[in-house]
Amino acid sequence: MTAISFDPLFFAVAVPAMIFAGVSKAGFGSGPAFAAMTILALVLDPAVALGLTLPLLMLVDAVTLRPYWRRWDWPAARDLIVGALPGVALGAALYRIADADVFRILIGVVALGFVGFRLAVHWQAIPARARPFGSRVGLLAGAVAGFTSFVSHAGGPPVAVYLLAGGLGKTTYQATTVLVFWAINIFKFVPYAFLGIFTADTMLGSAVLAPAALFGAWLGVRAHHVVPERLFFSLAYAALALSGAKLLWDGLT
């Protein structure tokens, strides 16, 4: 992997990227947080960006657990976390050979299709679902999230599709995503270390950018409590649509 050049261009790109990731993870369901990886890839090798961002994402997870403690939907979180374990294991096994673009395309299509479905229900073009998705869908969403989170920190859209269908309140939704990604990121840490994704440069970069990530988390928690529930979910669906479109674009190009 290439070394990190700690020059003004690096900080001009990396600091806003990590503030954005902190705000997204701490306040708005984690969906668009993976965009930080895309932004960092402008100045870093993708593998370096993976190693740099994981400790920062784990830091944000740790500091945002307390504000949302036990406010999550445990059955939904449990299904997603259990499903994520084999997804992370598969990501570790196939990391060197997996074509992440195929999964980006599939997730992008599902995310955009789900947003389209919810808009159609809102406009009464089709009837609403009688009940949320079941545990099997939760396990599958967790597996996909575990895999895509491992290879590109892009586990947000599968989790969002499953949770948004459940009709949760905004804080329950947010707390559930915090718990799920706290677990998934812990699952990823040891395989990342064995695969050599962490280096002295990435650890130094994580330490340097930690204040930006923490500031973003602080902003995100406060923004979550200020934004009305209807606006929150409008933003969540917009974030899902944008992240799905970005994944589809990245996969195709």
Rank of each mutant, 00 (worst) to 15 (best):
I197E: 01
D79V: 05
R230N: 11
G138A: 04
A76E: 03
V48A: 13
G108K: 08
D99E: 12
P8N: 07
A49T: 05
T176I: 03
W218S: 12
R96F: 07
T172N: 09
L85I: 14
P46D: 01
V221K: 14
L168A: 11
A36P: 07
A217L: 06
V88H: 10
A125Q: 12
R131A: 15
P228Y: 11
A89W: 06
A223S: 13
A49M: 08
A165C: 11
V102Q: 07
A212N: 04
F181G: 01
G108F: 06
K188G: 08
A98H: 07
S24Y: 10
M1C: 03
P191S: 03
V110N: 02
A217K: 13
W249C: 00
D73W: 10
G244L: 00
A223Q: 06
L56N: 06
G166E: 05
V208T: 09
I186P: 05
S243N: 13
D250T: 13
G91F: 05
F6E: 00
I81S: 04
V82A: 09
G146D: 03
A200V: 13
G22F: 13
F114A: 09
M37I: 13
G251E: 00
F189K: 09
R104A: 07
L57T: 01
V63G: 03
A200P: 00
A93G: 12
R222T: 02
V151D: 02
A212S: 12
W182H: 12
